[in-house]
Amino acid sequence: MLIKEVAEKLNTTARSIRFYEEKGLISPKKDEENDYRYFTEKDLLRLSTILALREVGFPVNEIKVLLEDPSMSIQQYLNIQRSALYEKWIEMRDMIETIDEMVDRTTEDSYLPKDFYALAQHLKNLKSIRKNWTDRWNFDQQASDYDENIKKQGFSFNVHEGYDQALARIVEKTSLQPGNTCLDIGIGTGNLGSKFLQDGIKVIGVDQSEKMLEKCKEKHPQIETRKGHFLALPILDHSVDAVVSSYALHHLPDEEKVIALEEMTRVLKPNGQICIADLMFTDKVHREKVIADFQAVGNQIAIECIADEYYADRSLLTNWFSNCGYQIESYQFNRILGMIYARRHK
């Protein structure tokens, strides 16, 4: 297909297509004799993804990073488009909610300009947090041998002690019926989400790592995989019966954990359930005691591992759930692994 045909088909211009070629986003084949560009169906899919991302405001340099793999599958291209659109939609929703609150405050006698500034600053911070989250642990590189590296015993500090017990407890506690939808956030290779499949439950797995999603799909083709992360879930409002997660929330600082819980609540149906098993302490006192115990025996590896992640304070999470009207149960499997189960009342 020639460039003019492509431009007409995608409702763009030949000039725009040449621009994206100059920037290295697309590389159509050229005829050596007449220098004409010839576009394949794969080129069209890549170009349509570029146009969709540009439409929602992504700069060219960010698109280039997103599409750095030229051998991406159709599903990967569509996954990237969906994830980007959801992020933009969530951003627009935040803006609308902030404006609504500003409108409400203008009718109050206590209105102050500083209130507007505070709301605007909150919106700016929220946008920055969602946009700038990065995977500093590089899970794409871990995907191929992730399952083999889950060691459940041994080591001077074993974060996966109790792993199987925790996953089984999530499935046992999360009461679902055939036909229900379960969202697994940070699904990785599907070790948790796949346990729901045998009961006729639809599982949607969200992960920011393309390679993890590929591995999950390879192991469990029945799972619907979507690219995304805790802070911008590619899921419609009130559309899942349960949200589960294991060994993933500890990659977020406490401020971002709260945003993640808000996102889980957004996608959850009335009377839905949330169940999270993760690296966490019962409270601040428990954290200090565990670290002190490791210091007493000279286990520097354990101390460094805890410092490298964002182990949760379980009391902060349960307080948030309680304030938002959830019925809560919590468990501690061992000194670093805990679980929270929360059922929504409305």
Rank of each mutant, 00 (worst) to 15 (best):
D147P: 01
D147Y: 01
D147T: 01
D147R: 02
D147W: 00
D147Q: 04
E148Y: 06
E148W: 03
E148H: 07
E148G: 07
N149Q: 13
N149C: 05
N149T: 03
N149S: 10
I150H: 06
I150R: 08
I150T: 08
I150G: 06
K151S: 12
K151T: 13
K151V: 15
K151E: 14
K151C: 09
K151W: 11
K152H: 11
K152R: 15
K152I: 15
K152Q: 15
Q153G: 11
Q153D: 14
G154E: 05
F155Q: 15
S156Y: 07
S156G: 13
F157E: 06
F157M: 08
F157H: 10
F157C: 07
V159F: 08
V159T: 11
H160K: 08
H160R: 09
H160A: 13
H160Y: 15
E161H: 12
E161L: 13
E161C: 09
G162C: 12
G162A: 13
G162E: 11
G162L: 11
Y163M: 07
Y163K: 06
Y163I: 06
Y163Q: 06
D164K: 11
D164T: 15
Q165N: 11
Q165S: 12
Q165V: 14
A166W: 06
L167T: 08
L167H: 08
A168E: 13
A168S: 14
A168Q: 14
R169E: 14
R169D: 14
R169P: 01
R169C: 09
I170T: 00
I170P: 00
I170Q: 00
I170N: 00
V171I: 14
V171A: 14
E172Y: 13
E172R: 12
E172I: 06
E172D: 13
E172F: 12
K173L: 15
T174A: 13
T174L: 10
T174C: 13
S175E: 12
S175Y: 10
L176K: 02
L176M: 14
L176V: 15
L176F: 03
Q177K: 12
Q177V: 09
Q177G: 02
Q177W: 09
P178W: 11
P178N: 12
G179P: 07
G179D: 10
N180R: 06
N180F: 09
N180G: 04
N180K: 09
N180L: 03
T181D: 03
C182H: 01
C182F: 02
C182N: 05
C182S: 03
L183Y: 04
L183N: 01
L183Q: 02
L183K: 05
D184E: 09
D184P: 02
D184K: 02
D184G: 02
I185S: 00
I185T: 05
G186D: 03
G186I: 06
I187F: 02
G188D: 05
G188Q: 08
G188L: 07
G188T: 11
T189H: 07
T189G: 05
T189F: 05
G190Q: 07
N191E: 13
L192G: 01
L192I: 09
G193R: 04
S194I: 01
S194M: 02
S194P: 02
K195I: 05
K195S: 08
K195F: 03
K195Q: 15
K195L: 14
K195N: 08
K195E: 10
K195P: 01
F196T: 04
F196C: 05
F196G: 00
